[in-house]
Amino acid sequence: MSHESEISKWVRMSLAFHNLNKGAESHLGLSLVQYYLLMMLRDMPGCSPQKLAVAVGMHPSSLTQSLKRLKKKRALYVAEDPKDSRKKILSLSREGLELLEKFSSGFRDLFKEGEFLDRVQELGLRSR
């Protein structure tokens, strides 16, 4: 396989992933990353952004942007740490929980319908 065709496959894969993410956000209210963040946060109520960043393996500055979007969606709330006003704590909101549930029940269909699986197959990444 030449470099050009290999790169073109990866680019198409990346675009397919981008479209999957966009589709998820417009149909289900959350992108994949947002879903993952909320899912982790559900099990870490009252945690600090730093602790969440470590848990999801994300750089704190990238996390800040995602948290801002999720806050706008009222999926989580950010408050001052009751013991240290310089720090913040995060928790999932009821709206966030509902988004998580909506995403979990609708994602499989979205995944099947989209072009993403074709691209995965094309690259030979699909395990079964």
Binding site: R42, D43, P45, S91, L92, L97
Partner: peptide, 15 residues
């Protein structure tokens, strides 16, 4: 308000 929200979020997981 904050305390009530934290209490609520505890019930979203196995606590």
């Amino acid at each position: 308000e904050l305390g009530k929200k934290v209490l609520e979020s505890l019930s979203f997981t196995q606590t």
